[in-house]
């Protein structure tokens, strides 16, 4: 009987050891959404809200979701609009999702457009954040026209380290100048694709928001 008890205790210890030793973050996903707030792109924020809601609906316990704005200097924690790591319990995670939705809603109501667009800074911030979280899947969503405009003195000519990252450009709108010369649009997309792939990341573009199911795959 004593032997049986001992064996039971040992198995429990073994199981608990396995449980603690396993890094649970390796099964979770991290999504960092960068929302462009420069110039006239603020008009597109309603679409960004749709994407946020869709993403919230697709995330589960243990996943991390961050929404940050792209403005003059985006390499800063101050640009994070809302961030959350969902609780283990599904009911609590649902509450967190509702709260997150409210935070984003308030932000959209009072957002002011910025003069410059520091996309690289935002991507660097996202990389840093998700690397720190060490989630299994790391996805950076860029909701922008991808036209970067840096304030004088800002250095962003930095190679990106995007090993294990998926970078998805969403709703890349065509500017007036793109209509005149479409090559500008093409070059812009190509530049970002090269930049991401040179950093070791995967590049994807989703312009049709009807195909959001491709955004998060299981």
């Amino acid at each position: 009987m004593k032997g049986l008890l001992l064996a039971g205790l040992l198995s429990l210890l073994f199981i608990s050891g396995c449980s603690d030793g396993q890094d649970n973050t390796l099964f979770n996903r991290g999504i960092y959404l960068l929302v462009d707030t420069s110039g006239t792109y603020t008009k597109e924020l309603a679409k960004a809200q749709q994407i946020i809601n869709y993403t919230l609906a697709k995330l589960y316990a243990g996943d991390t979701f961050v929404v940050a704005s792209i403005d003059t200097g985006s390499f800063s924690e101050k640009d994070i609009v809302a961030k959350v790591t969902f609780d283990d319990r599904p009911s609590k995670a649902n509450q967190q999702k509702r709260l997150f939705q409210e935070q984003v809603g308030q932000y959209v109501k009072q957002v002011k457009s910025s003069s410059y667009t520091d996309i690289t800074g935002g991507v660097l911030q996202a990389t840093e954040f998700l690397n720190e979280k060490n989630t299994r899947d790391k996805t950076i969503l860029i909701f922008s026209d991808l036209k970067e405009e840096l304030k004088e003195g800002y250095v962003r000519d930095i190679p990106l380290s995007l090993q294990g990252f998926d970078v998805v450009a969403l709703n890349v709108t065509k500017l007036r100048s793109d209509n005149i010369d479409p090559r500008e649009y093409m070059n812009r997309l190509e530049k970002w694709e090269n930049l991401v792939e040179a950093g070791g990341g995967q590049w994807k573009i989703i312009n049709d928001l009807e195909q959001l199911d491709k955004l998060i795959q299981y």
Binding site: I15, Q22, N28, D63, D88, A93
Partner: peptide, 10 residues
């Protein structure tokens, strides 16, 4: 998942 957590893996 409500009892033992939804993101804990073994």
């Amino acid at each position: 998942q409500e009892m033992v957590g939804g993101s804990v893996h073994m």
